[in-house]
Design a protein around this nucleic acid. Structure first.
Lengths: 202, 202
DNA sequence: TAAATTGGCGTACAGTTGTAAGCTCAAAGT
DNA sequence: ACTTTGAGCTTACAACTGTACGCCAATTTA
């Protein structure tokens, strides 16, 4: 099995090379097959032994990023069970993720509105997990109808993601304020949705 | 003045060419100077008589887009004064804008999280106008402290923009639903902010 | 009217890109 | 032990990129 092992190793080398070349100034679209191959330590044409396309690589990266997001969710769930407060714990956990994996988050952020419909769809799917998970919590906590919880979760995730985007361009010392502001926004949302739901359960 | 007139004319030709080449599949980053020049009907090297850089062109496009946004705001203001409901009128007006100027909106959307810090800053500035304007209305209507109105306005604009992004990938017949859902989210936000502001005017 | 300015053009060059064709050679399969 | 497979390489090519340089011709200025 040394054969398949080696293959997997260089495949990872390609993926890592791609991730490492992403930055604030360089998006996936401006990566070149040759550069990636160079950093991965293989000949340009060898790239094709692993991916048919740069696009295929890109989708792999998005998948990988989605995986990390789901790990993040698991971590948040644990923290919530211990610490209690859903909103603030979630936001804080998310901000840590952005701080420590800015390249990964940037990828998601950019490809969400990028030029490839397939990429956009892939990112949307990953984010959908987030929303569903959050909606689950909300329904458990507020006992509101599922559709309402879903809509509320989407709004919350939108706000949190947007704050993450801001964070990418902000110095680290602004993070606490960004976090506080976002928590406030989410509380408004929760509060408003709860009382609206009570008044008109339409 | 026929001289400066001609110059302005081809300058506009370049700008129009650039806008027309933007699409769902092609972002500004993947425009080439040569292609733009070709469509504008000039030689590649003549491009430099008008812009030092593709970046300079890009910033011009963002400015132009910002201008259209501000016209949109003016239109929304008029409609609100006539029709009353701030939230639904604003969202509806915005959705019309997205539908009729999708390329322009896409530009803003993409460059907001694009690879150029200057572009990101330019887009952020344009959106800031939006928020300030909305905050003004909110303060007038709810008489809450300025900082609170600002935060609320930012949340609202974030949600509306995000819906606009969704609209770009959705068939036209989904627009009414997108609009309805967004209005709901904004009402929650307004409601929650109002009652939170009453309880703890911190 | 003469001189200066300048928008636009053509040519040219060096660099980079994706990828096709064919080779090597070690591992895997028989 | 022999054959097949396949990851990786080298070479090669055609397409395209941005832009430097110098010329032209028409408008503007003096």
């Amino acid at each position: 099995m040394t054969r398949a092992e080696q293959k997997e190793r260089t495949r990872q080398a390609i993926i890592n090379a791609a991730f490492s070349q992403l930055s604030a100034e360089k998006g996936f679209a401006s990566l070149s097959l040759r550069e990636v191959a160079r950093e991965a330590g293989i000949a340009p044409t060898s790239f094709y032994r692993h991916f048919a396309d740069m696009d295929e690589l890109g989708l792999t990266l998005v998948d990988e990023a989605g995986l990390m997001l789901r790990q993040l969710m698991r971590q948040a769930r644990l923290r919530i069970e211990k610490h209690g407060s859903v909103i603030s714990t979630s936001v804080e956990t998310f901000m840590e993720f952005v701080a420590e994996n800015s390249n990964v988050f940037r990828l998601l952020l950019r490809e969400r509105s990028g030029t490839s419909a397939a990429f956009r769809a892939a990112v949307a799917r990953e984010i959908q997990h987030f929303c569903a998970e959050l909606a689950h919590y909300l329904r458990k906590q507020t006992q509101c109808p599922p559709e309402l919880a879903q809509l509320q979760a989407e709004a919350m995730v939108t706000l949190v993601f947007h704050t993450g985007a801001d964070a990418l361009d902000a110095p680290r010392e602004h993070y606490p304020q960004l976090t506080r502001r976002t928590i406030m926004q989410l509380r408004w949302l929760a509060h408003g949705a709860a009382s609206y739901g009570r008044k008109q359960p339409d």
